[in-house]
Design a binder for these strands. Structure first.
Lengths: 101, 101
DNA sequence: CTATAAGTTCGAGAATCATCGAACTATCGG
DNA sequence: CCGATAGTTCGATGATTCTCGAACTTATAG
């Protein structure tokens, strides 16, 4: 698969984009699964276990382009991480509140 | 204009709906204007001052149906209030973080 | 009572977003 | 090199959402 995907810089992350990305139950569930640490994409099941992979990939794209997660090549898989540092710096308390609620 | 509009009960408010409602710059701006206290709708200008009133009314509807604001008749005007109590109880820290960022 | 001010609702068209199959890409095991 | 695995990208279709004018509603001013 294509190696490095584009990620916004910290300074480019927009609050409204982050809120939008998290405003979908499936995408929110993904973010919550990443709260405890990075996961390989294959281990990250959203809510529906047999979701088509193109749909799952699209969820990841929305989260990535909003600046919520990083999606980096890791061998023949993909490593997903929450951009907690960046989000905490930009929007203090937001992530904690959203993931906890 | 129609008197009482429907508002969700506190128990019916969904986090994803709140995030969606606030994920638009115009609607977020409205919520921020209400942070300091209730306003008559006529005093609440979103960002564009000569926005068609049907569009403005639609913004209010999205915010109201998500449980972010109350919209109550007040003479021949409308009084808008942030549902801070409800949101703070349901999603502690969320509103503060979003309005401050 | 009538006119006006302040909003809501309805309807239509445009724009955006979601979903998923199919084709493509890259990596690893044998 | 070959096949399988894990994912991305593309394209089409359908579903939501946005935007705004026009018609409607209601309370007050006169």
């Amino acid at each position: 698969m294509p190696g490095e995907l584009p990620h916004p810089e910290r300074s480019e992350i927009q609050l409204t984009d982050v809120l939008f990305a998290l405003s979908d139950p499936e995408r929110l569930a993904i973010a919550r699964q990443l709260a405890d640490g990075p996961l390989d994409m294959a281990e990250c099941h959203a809510t529906d276990p047999n979701l088509p992979k193109s749909t799952k990939s699209h969820f990841m794209k929305v989260l990535r382009e909003a600046g919520v997660i990083r999606n980096e090549p890791n061998g023949r898989r993909r490593m997903l991480t929450l951009r907690r540092d960046d989000l905490d710096e930009l929007f203090p308390g937001l992530l904690e509140s959203v993931l906890r609620s």
